[in-house]
Simulated scan of single mutants.
Amino acid sequence: MREDFPNDDELRSNFEELLASVRGGDGLFTESGLDTETENALLAIARAYPEVPDHLITAARRAFAGQLDGSNAAAVKAATARKIAEINRRGTTR
Protein backbone atom coordinates (compact mmCIF):
# COMPACT_ATOMS: atom_id res chain seq x y z
CA MET A 1 0.00 0.00 0.00
CA ARG A 2 1.27 3.40 -0.98
CA GLU A 3 1.68 6.01 1.75
CA ASP A 4 2.34 9.07 -0.40
CA PHE A 5 0.56 10.69 -3.30
CA PRO A 6 1.84 10.08 -6.83
CA ASN A 7 3.59 13.00 -8.47
CA ASP A 8 2.32 14.51 -11.75
CA ASP A 9 4.53 12.26 -13.90
CA GLU A 10 3.24 9.17 -12.10
CA LEU A 11 -0.33 10.42 -12.45
CA ARG A 12 0.16 10.96 -16.18
CA SER A 13 1.60 7.48 -16.54
CA ASN A 14 -1.27 5.95 -14.54
CA PHE A 15 -3.85 7.86 -16.57
CA GLU A 16 -2.40 6.77 -19.91
CA GLU A 17 -2.15 3.17 -18.70
CA LEU A 18 -5.76 3.16 -17.50
CA LEU A 19 -7.00 4.91 -20.64
CA ALA A 20 -5.36 2.21 -22.76
CA SER A 21 -6.82 -0.45 -20.47
CA VAL A 22 -10.43 0.72 -20.73
CA ARG A 23 -10.12 1.39 -24.46
CA GLY A 24 -9.00 -2.22 -24.81
CA GLY A 25 -11.94 -3.61 -22.86
CA ASP A 26 -10.18 -4.07 -19.54
CA GLY A 27 -10.88 -2.32 -16.25
CA LEU A 28 -9.28 0.08 -13.82
CA PHE A 29 -6.82 -0.71 -11.06
CA THR A 30 -7.08 0.78 -7.60
CA GLU A 31 -4.61 3.10 -5.92
CA SER A 32 -3.96 4.95 -9.18
CA GLY A 33 -4.09 8.37 -7.56
CA LEU A 34 -6.72 9.51 -10.06
CA ASP A 35 -9.62 11.50 -8.70
CA THR A 36 -13.27 10.49 -8.85
CA GLU A 37 -14.10 12.67 -11.84
CA THR A 38 -11.27 11.18 -13.88
CA GLU A 39 -12.12 7.63 -12.82
CA ASN A 40 -15.78 8.20 -13.73
CA ALA A 41 -14.75 9.41 -17.19
CA LEU A 42 -12.63 6.29 -17.65
CA LEU A 43 -15.51 4.10 -16.47
CA ALA A 44 -17.74 5.70 -19.12
CA ILE A 45 -15.23 4.53 -21.71
CA ALA A 46 -15.20 1.03 -20.22
CA ARG A 47 -19.01 0.90 -20.37
CA ALA A 48 -19.01 2.05 -23.99
CA TYR A 49 -16.47 -0.56 -25.12
CA PRO A 50 -16.08 -1.73 -27.86
CA GLU A 51 -17.75 1.27 -29.55
CA VAL A 52 -15.95 4.11 -27.75
CA PRO A 53 -16.87 7.50 -29.22
CA ASP A 54 -14.16 10.14 -29.47
CA HIS A 55 -16.06 12.50 -27.17
CA LEU A 56 -15.57 10.08 -24.26
CA ILE A 57 -11.81 10.07 -24.82
CA THR A 58 -11.87 13.87 -24.94
CA ALA A 59 -13.95 13.99 -21.74
CA ALA A 60 -11.50 11.70 -19.95
CA ARG A 61 -8.54 13.84 -20.99
CA ARG A 62 -10.43 16.97 -19.89
CA ALA A 63 -11.26 15.38 -16.52
CA PHE A 64 -7.63 14.42 -16.02
CA ALA A 65 -6.50 17.93 -16.92
CA GLY A 66 -8.92 19.18 -14.26
CA GLN A 67 -7.26 16.93 -11.73
CA LEU A 68 -3.82 18.24 -12.59
CA ASP A 69 -4.83 21.92 -12.53
CA GLY A 70 -6.92 21.56 -9.37
CA SER A 71 -10.25 22.55 -10.91
CA ASN A 72 -11.85 19.17 -10.12
CA ALA A 73 -10.95 19.52 -6.44
CA ALA A 74 -12.16 23.13 -6.41
CA ALA A 75 -15.51 22.09 -7.90
CA VAL A 76 -15.95 19.36 -5.26
CA LYS A 77 -15.05 21.81 -2.50
CA ALA A 78 -17.54 24.38 -3.83
CA ALA A 79 -20.32 21.78 -4.13
CA THR A 80 -19.68 20.62 -0.58
CA ALA A 81 -19.77 24.20 0.70
CA ARG A 82 -23.11 24.77 -1.09
CA LYS A 83 -24.57 21.62 0.47
CA ILE A 84 -23.40 22.63 3.95
CA ALA A 85 -24.79 26.13 3.49
CA GLU A 86 -28.14 24.70 2.40
CA ILE A 87 -28.27 22.35 5.39
CA ASN A 88 -27.38 25.21 7.70
CA ARG A 89 -29.99 27.45 6.08
CA ARG A 90 -32.69 24.82 6.54
CA GLY A 91 -31.59 24.25 10.11
CA THR A 92 -32.07 27.91 11.03
CA THR A 93 -35.55 28.18 9.51
CA ARG A 94 -37.14 25.57 11.77
Rank of each mutant, 00 (worst) to 15 (best):
S21A: 09
F64C: 01
S71D: 07
R47V: 15
T38N: 04
L11H: 08
L43G: 08
R82V: 14
R61P: 03
L18W: 01
E17A: 07
A65T: 14
D9K: 13
P50W: 01
S32Q: 07
E39V: 01
M1C: 11
T93S: 13
E17F: 08
S32K: 00
P6E: 03
R90F: 12
D35A: 01
A75N: 05
T36Q: 12
E17N: 10
K83A: 14
F64K: 01
K83I: 12
S71N: 09
R61D: 08
A48P: 02
H55C: 06
A44W: 05
A85V: 07
P53G: 05
H55Q: 07
V22W: 01
V76G: 12
L68F: 05
P53F: 03
D9N: 14
F15Y: 04
H55Y: 10
V52E: 02
N40H: 11
A81T: 11
F5A: 10
D69A: 05
V52N: 04
A48Y: 00
D35W: 00
N88G: 14
A78E: 14
T93E: 14
M1V: 10
D69M: 15
Y49R: 08
S21W: 01
R61F: 03
E10Y: 08
F29T: 05
A85Y: 12
E17L: 04
S71W: 08
A65G: 09
L34D: 00
R61C: 04
V52C: 06
T38S: 10
T36R: 10
T58E: 12
S21D: 02
R82W: 15
G33F: 03
E51L: 11
L68S: 05
L43H: 07
E37F: 14
V52Q: 02
E10A: 09
G25D: 03
A85R: 10
V52P: 00
A74G: 07
D26Q: 12
I84E: 12
V22N: 00
R23E: 00
A60P: 02
A79C: 11
E16Y: 07
F15R: 02
E37C: 07
E31W: 13
G25I: 06
E51I: 12
T92L: 13
T38I: 07
N72G: 00
P50D: 03
A48S: 07
E16I: 08
E3Q: 14
A78N: 09
A59K: 05
R89G: 14
Q67H: 03
T30K: 08
G25C: 06
V76N: 10
I45M: 08
N40T: 12
R23Y: 02
P6V: 04
F64A: 01
L34K: 01
A44Q: 11
I87D: 13
G91R: 11
V76H: 10
E17H: 09
T92Q: 15
G70V: 09
D35K: 00
D4H: 09
D35I: 00
F29G: 05
R61T: 11
E3N: 15
A48W: 01
G33K: 07
F64W: 01
D8Y: 10
S71M: 05
R82L: 15
R94F: 11
A65E: 14
